[in-house]
Structures are given as C-alpha cells and as structure tokens.
Design a binder for these strands. Structure first.
Lengths: 153, 153
DNA sequence: TCCATTTCTTGATCTAGATCAATGCCCGGC
DNA sequence: GCCGGGCATTGATCTAGATCAAGAAATGGA
C-alpha cells in the first residue's frame, strides 16, 4: 500500500487499530496533549513496524502518519502476534527501558547525543522540530543544545 | 528462594542476568546516575516478573533489590522466552508506551495521580521517596504535590 | 519565479521543579 | 526504652528548559 507524506493512518481514539509495517519510507506515532502539543513516541523506517499496542477493543492513544511517501503493509494485531519473533518484542522492551531511563535522568544535551548515536539514519530525514518532540524538549531548547555542540567543535 | 528486604539481586554491569519472578513480596529495578541519584524503573509484586532485558552477553544497566522480604524464582532469559505468553509481553510494551508519554507530557501532579490510580496496591507498600523516584521527580516535589492534593480535599 | 508557510535561530522573560538546608518524626536495632 | 539514621515536610534559592516574540532562512506549491 502506498501512502503520501502527511497522510494520517490512525487517529487517537480509534478502535481495532492495526500494525503498520514499513517497506520504504518513514512513519511516526505521536500523541497530542491537552495543550495541543505533539509528542512523538516513535519513528519507523524501512524494515520496522509501528503501532499503538493497546487492546484492539480499546480506543488507541496514538496518531500515526507518514513523514515521507511510503510503502507499507497493514497487519492485524492478532495475526502479527502469531508471527512475531519473541526476541524482536523483548528487544523493543529493552529500547523502551532505555528511553524511560533517559527521560528520567538525562539532560537535553545527553538525550540529543544519544539520539544522534542511536538513530543516525533518522537524523537526516526529519526536522529538528520532530527530533525535539521525540526527545521531550522544545525546538528552541534543541536549537540551543546544537549551538553549544557546534561551538565545542 | 527467599530474600530479605534490602538484599541486592543484581547490580548494573553484571553479565548473564536473569528474570526474577515474585511469588510473595516486592522487588524493584533502578539505575544510579553519574550524580549518584537512583531512578526506579519498575516495581514487581506478587505474580509479576522483573528483569533487565538487555542481551545476556551485554552488561546490564539496572540494579534489582528487595523492598520487602520476598519469595522469588530465578529464571533463565532464554528459558523464559520459550514459556512467556506473547500477550503479556505486548502488554508490557503498552505500559511502557504510556510511561514514556507521561514522562514527556505530564506534570508531577498528573504523574502522581496516574500512579495512584494504576498502582493502588503498590502505593501503601513503598515510601514516598520511592514513588518520587519512579515518577521522575524529587521527594520534595512529591511532598508539595501531595500537600496541594490534600488542600483540595 | 514568487509568495506563503513552516522551520530554525536568537533574545528576553518566566516557571516547574531541583537543590540546599533545617526541623521534627518515625521506626528499627541494640 | 533509647538512640541514630533515614524519611517527610517546609522554606529559600537556583536553574534548565519552557514560553513568548520576532527575524532570517529554508521549503514547497502554483
């Protein structure tokens, strides 16, 4: 299935949400808080999947849209559960564990440096606004962090 | 296996770490940052498991210790992967998804209220210092949040 | 190509929560 | 039962990052 940049695949509140597999392109999942601010939960590029892992009977909390023109597959959650490798899922938990610890203990600078190291291929494909949102800081704060980094060569 | 309150089951940096199943009692996992501050990643009471889900060949990043005298089982990670129900693991991801979103968008008050609602049985069994650490705020900040809450009846 | 929109940057100010410090309290070990 | 160390509370101060604002630089659509 082909989707265009900007196309929304899932909105918060929807039921019976799916798992999206990315063949080419880039998707993201995010929430919008009560003040209207977006918080990016995840990026997914080639070879990755993205979903809101709520129960299929519950309204989801994440939006999912395309950051680039993409080719995707739509998979039913129950179907996916049958196929998925346990190691993949466990690794997903480990990545989230790292993320939680980051958010609890690391400064804006440390988070950005970790992001650069961990997702070098994503960095060039998304705006700083998106990176800031993923890191849990404002674009202004990220801009200043980058300025500091460039000053220090 | 019986462990006493305060006993450390795993230290950051150890290899070939295990999964701990709690039969009775209460365990926690946490990191210690470069300033020496503890950040609690998880609590596990009766019926739950707790672990650092890093690769068995990698040094782990979490400490695990007992907050109460407990009875536990020690399970090998590979063994556990064979037995574990995929729904359990997927739900774990969903809980972490909520936690990440919380940490990115919610105030200390909102986090505390969510914790009260989600883990009412843990609340009475741990100190406020522990709860504060889990929420990613200082004990002082949590104390003030609670004061506000009690004022509002 | 031009215009409009969005992004990035920079500056000024504000604020939630951190840090530091002092006190009283509880609780567990001896 | 007493003593000492961690815990909770409160107050004063500090600070990383948010917010607000305004200009410059990309970006994209017609």
């Amino acid at each position: 299935m082909r989707v265009m940049k900007g196309q929304v695949l899932q909105r918060a509140g929807e039921l019976n949400t799916k798992v999206f597999g990315v063949e080419t392109g880039l998707l993201r999942s995010y929430t919008i808080d009560e003040k209207g601010k977006e918080h990016i939960f995840a990026f997914a590029n080639e070879g990755w999947t993205i979903a809101d892992l709520c129960e299929v009977t519950d309204p989801c909390e994440l939006f999912i849209d395309a950051l680039e023109d993409s080719t995707i597959t739509v998979i039913d959650k129950e179907e996916r559960k049958k196929q998925v490798d346990i190691n993949t899922v466990v690794n997903r938990i480990f990545v989230l564990q790292k993320r939680v610890i980051m958010l609890m203990s690391a400064s804006a600078l440390e988070r950005y440096q970790h992001f650069l190291k961990t997702y070098p291929n994503i960095v060039q494909r998304v705006s700083q606004k998106m990176i800031a949102s993923y890191l849990g800081v404002t674009p202004e704060a990220l801009s200043r962090v980058r300025k500091e980094l460039s000053k220090a060569e």
